[in-house]
């Protein structure tokens, strides 16, 4: 009788690879029920008055892009289409190229002007310390913007900002770990009484339930949360297959990826059951 250790792990890799490949090719886009946490994230943004200023922090890198990038794109669309202005920062060094790319693509769709409707401040080293400095005074933390390398006080958007997060009505952190949402809550949220929203990777999501709704007004948990949020932001919009960056296309693509993930989770559970059956059989034979 075969035991678990007898089975070459490459068989497990092959099974998982085939399941992912087949379900990816034959994936279907299906609407998911929206959780209260995602709904709270969406409604918090919906309730902001036009012209408000929101700080959007990219606390991730390409390793987490599969989960966080759709959230990032959808949040930019959602904020800009509601005429909410964005101050964009990053606490991960590899984040700014993403920031630049998506703002370059999305802002012109809504006729938004750099420096007036959105501002890119870039990466600030220092983890929690940097967050504390941003909270205390944005103008002290960033001397120049990261796009045009001009003093940030030259931009109309910063004229409305003051120390202690003055002028910022909401902080949104898309977080893949440390530094991220938990540090923003500790350094800025409670201290300056700024509401916080977040989108996180699956690994970090369980941490957030303890902070909801007092310290974190809403959150998007992993690819599932991203898909549910995309559904809310793209209500009535249809997929444009030729345009992969169209938000409705991103939504449909995410929904198909959820189909892949469903099967991958199913196979994982099946493998655990098979592993346990082999283990207990082997043990009873030894006894």
């Amino acid at each position: 009788m075969a035991t678990v250790t007898d089975i070459d792990r490459r068989w497990v890799f092959l099974i998982m690879g085939l399941v992912v490949l087949i379900t990816y090719i034959g994936g279907v886009a299906k609407d998911l029920p929206v959780s209260e946490y995602v709904d709270a994230y969406y409604k918090t943004i919906e309730d902001l008055p036009a012209g408000s200023v929101v700080m959007l922090s990219a606390d991730f890198d390409p390793a987490s892009a599969a989960e966080l990038l759709p959230m990032y794109q959808a949040t930019i669309h959602h904020l800009l289409r509601r005429d909410i202005r964005i101050v964009n920062v990053a606490t991960w060094p590899a984040a700014p190229p993403y920031t630049r790319r998506w703002f370059d693509q999305i802002a012109p769709q809504y006729g938004k002007v750099y420096g007036t409707d959105w501002l890119e401040l870039g990466f600030l080293p220092g983890d929690d310390v940097a967050m504390g400095q941003i909270g205390g005074s944005i103008t002290s933390a960033f001397a120049e913007d990261a796009r045009e390398n001009k003093p940030i006080t030259d931009f109309p958007l910063t004229a409305e900002l003051s120390s202690n997060m003055g002028g910022i009505v909401l902080l949104v952190s898309l977080s893949a770990g440390y530094p991220g949402i938990l540090e923003w809550i500790a350094q800025v949220g409670g201290r300056y009484d700024v509401p916080i929203l977040t989108g996180t990777t699956a690994v970090q999501t369980p941490d957030l339930y303890a902070y909801y709704p007092s310290q974190c007004s809403g959150f998007l948990g992993a690819a599932t949360g991203a898909t549910q949020y995309l559904q809310l932001v793209t209500v009535g919009e249809t997929e444009v297959p030729d345009d992969p960056d169209n938000l409705a296309t991103v939504r449909a693509s995410n929904q198909r990826r959820m189909f892949v993930q469903s099967w991958a989770h199913g196979i994982l559970i099946l493998l655990i059951i098979v592993g346990n059956v082999l283990y207990f059989r082997g043990r009873s034979q030894t006894a």
């Binding site: 497990v12 890799f13 390409p62 987490s64 346990n276 283990y279």
Partner: peptide
């Protein structure tokens, strides 16, 4: 970087199969 991270799915499957008892 995305490729490296996506490989986790395979390693997690193998680890769960062998160790989750």
């Amino acid at each position: 970087q995305a490729t490296m991270f996506s490989l986790l799915a395979f390693y997690i499957a193998s680890a769960a199969f062998r160790a989750f008892r």
